[in-house]
């Protein structure tokens, strides 16, 4: 996975969790739905990203009862995660703007 893709994945995970705690599968589903599979990542590559983000303190997890009526690991955003989301969003926007200017020079 390229760095850009990884950064994008993290940004998207943060985005997802901004709406509330959810488990890994729910995150994967959401990524799949909202990006219409455009990113096309394997499910498995989501988890190392989640664990690294947890190490960095952006998200935290606990085990709760799930739909299957057995414990599932739920992730949720921390305060640091919220700040990171804000920062990365604006960076992403700046990046997109910059790229847009390069790729579509204003006529």
């Amino acid at each position: 996975m390229s760095d850009r893709l990884r950064g994008t994945l993290e940004l998207l995970v943060l985005r997802t969790l901004a709406w509330g705690p959810r488990h890994g599968y729910a995150i994967a589903r959401w990524l799949q739905d909202t990006t219409s599979a455009a990113l096309h990542v394997e499910d498995g590559s989501l988890y190392p990203a989640l664990y690294r983000m947890e190490q960095r303190g952006w998200i935290e997890s606990d085990w709760r009862r799930s739909e299957l009526d057995r414990p599932a690991k739920f992730y949720r955003l921390t305060a640091a995660g919220r700040r990171q989301l804000k920062k990365e969003t604006s960076e992403w926007r700046a990046f997109v703007d910059a790229v847009a200017i390069v790729l579509e020079p204003s006529q």
């Binding site: 488990h23 890994g24 599968y25 994967a28 499910d43 988890y47 606990d62 085990w63 709760r64 009862r65 799930s66 299957l68 057995r70 414990p71 599932a72 690991k73």
Partner: peptide, 23 residues
């Protein structure tokens, strides 16, 4: 929905396996 504390910290292997199994 919070589970009792004993459930919170099973061994690492179990935690990883059960998370992936759940997926």
């Amino acid at each position: 929905r919070t589970l009792p504390p004993e459930v919170i910290q099973p061994p690492v292997d179990k935690r990883v396996d059960s998370e992936l199994a759940f997926h």
